[in-house]
Design a protein around this nucleic acid. Structure first.
Lengths: 128, 128
DNA sequence: CTCCAATCTGGAGTGCGCTCCAGGTCAAGG
DNA sequence: CCTTGACCTGGAGCGCACTCCAGATTGGAG
């Protein structure tokens, strides 16, 4: 069974050491192992949780909701429906987010095109 | 020349009244007109600035950078190159953001598929 | 054994982007 | 006129997600 020191877990997950400690403190990441001396030892299982957290954070899920998901998962098999629903709801929000981002990106590109076809020619319009 | 009361400007721009005041206070939105009684009057020009701010905010630009853009635009025609570059740089960051979002969305969907093809069958794997 | 980099804890502090509040002013309808 | 609701100002407060700090271990390299 492979175990990772905090620095290694941070490197692999992309979270900072402080964030790993913080996630444990708020109960998002539970039951992290320790050496006899009290140092954390992260397992592959912990790492795969962190990978999931990264995915959820990057897609804008608030930490409170991740906590909810994690505690459901810890509660056992009978919560699978609720967990699935939670993720599906989140996925729908991500889709909306992607649509908005695409739309605003298009606006941005249009704006940039305005600047690009403006070489020298004094436009009647300011750059707002 | 059309003028909009604060509430109307808020409605049209999607920003709250407090946010409109805040944007003016920090100098993002400058030279907002007033009635004799001191009430704000937003012009179509102000509205189009707000539309741009909405676009930039929705795509994740920090307020400090929007301030920079706005002050460049106010400084006059000789800043068009810098403004264009600023927007182009931002657009590149948005593209990166969209790629990341898509990637993590795919992970999320995979996770959901795991839950969907799990009806009853006791998996050897927990739902992390 | 010694050293030093990594790690530990509890708690305070930070940065961002608003959001809310108190206490007053303005203006349109009745 | 009077009421009422929109609006004004300056400044305090908030929610989120970390991030930093001090002071005390820990444990592998030499």
């Amino acid at each position: 069974m492979t175990g990772y020191a905090p620095a290694e877990a941070a490197r692999r997950s992309g979270f900072s050491l402080d964030t790993l400690r913080y996630y444990e403190k708020i109960g998002l990441l539970a039951d992290v192992g320790r050496t006899s001396g009290g140092r954390r030892v992260f397992t592959d299982d912990d790492l795969s949780w962190l990978l999931l957290f990264r995915c959820l954070r990057d897609t804008g899920m608030p930490i409170a909701q991740m906590c909810r998901y994690a505690s459901l998962a810890r509660a056992g098999e009978h919560t699978v429906d609720e967990r699935r629903e939670l993720l599906q709801l989140h996925a729908a929000q991500v889709e909306e987010q992607m649509r908005l981002l695409q739309r605003q990106y298009d606006h941005l590109r249009e704006k940039i095109r305005f600047y690009e076809r403006l070489p020298g020619a004094p436009a009647p319009d300011e750059g707002r």
